[in-house]
Write a protein that binds this DNA or RNA. Structure first.
Lengths: 165, 165
DNA sequence: GTTAGTGCAAACCTTTTGCAGCTCT
DNA sequence: AGAGCTGCAAAAGGTTTGCACTAAC
């Protein structure tokens, strides 16, 4: 959904486009994905130092409730805050590397199939679906193997010289 | 995983089976699924009033890191706390009704298919996978329809008599 | 006897709320 | 004009940490 379309949607719902909201909407729109409230706040403050953190939270809540952004946890990598992304047309899963924190997105019709199965199995009306996967990306798998080898060598060395220096 | 097996696993890792941990493990094992820290704490206190909330958090963290329990958000229905369930053999999705809070579980090989696709697409080594779905259960769909009708009638009534009493 | 684990108090981080004043429409 | 929104301060909710004491191995 484009920035202009989002503004229209809000206007239609009788929600005021204040200076602060315009700024926040722009920032969310421009930014890459997966912003958390604090990052958004800091970005906003550079352009409007008086803008309050509370306004950020209130705006995000508004957008979330209006279905204009999705809220993610990203496996709580880096804390318990929430992340937000503008709602894309296509459902996708988030894949988080537990070592480097990189987030990949997976599109694929398995997700739609899952959705349909759940709707029919339970007669459930789905509003939001969230799949988050944690593990190690190809790159970090290698690095972890190295780290583990080093740790083993350290332990062996410590074993040879019984007491710690 | 059975209670005894969990205890063994912990022992093998050199983790002490203190009185407090034994109690918490039992409670987690007995309880139905989807316990949050506070509930577990309250249950534990009935049997050991001196057991501290902090110990509950530390034990849950331990179990989570050891892969003995899974941590869930359940779409933050009812707050931002986490829920825990003992790790079952079978991966499943959690389906949360946003009106009544009921949680259903969905097993199905679509989930395994999704898992495999992600592993091969990204060369990703999956540690935890979490699918949570929010929406309205069959029962609440009906109730919501009624509520919306009532709301419409209220608005109409309010419209007929312009000022609020 | 060590070392890991506990309890307590206090801090922490993220998010929400109450209220007076400002601003969009 | 007036409801809606903002900023500020303060609180809430959930979780973690530092430290002295205790208990498991």
């Amino acid at each position: 959904m484009s920035l202009a379309a989002t503004k229209d949607t809000l206007k239609q719902r009788g929600i005021r486009l204040t200076r602060q909201r315009q700024l926040l909407l722009e920032l969310i729109d421009q930014s890459g994905k997966h912003l958390d409230a604090e990052s958004l706040y800091r970005m906003a403050q550079e352009r409007d130092p008086k803008l309050n953190r509370v306004t950020v939270y209130r705006t995000l809540k508004l957008l979330k409730e209006g279905g204009l952004v999705d809220e993610l946890d990203l496996m709580h990598y880096g804390g318990d805050q929430h992340y937000y992304e503008t709602r894309t047309k296509q459902e996708h899963a988030h894949i988080v590397c537990l070592r480097c924190g990189k987030v990949e997105e997976f599109f694929g019709d398995v997700l739609q199939r899952l959705r349909r199965q759940i709707e029919t199995t339970f007669g459930f009306q789905i509003v939001i679906a969230r799949t988050e996967i944690g593990g190690y990306c190809a790159h970090c798998q290698v690095l972890r193997a190295q780290e583990m080898t080093e740790a083993r060598l350290d332990t062996a060395a410590a074993g040879a010289k019984p007491a710690r220096p």
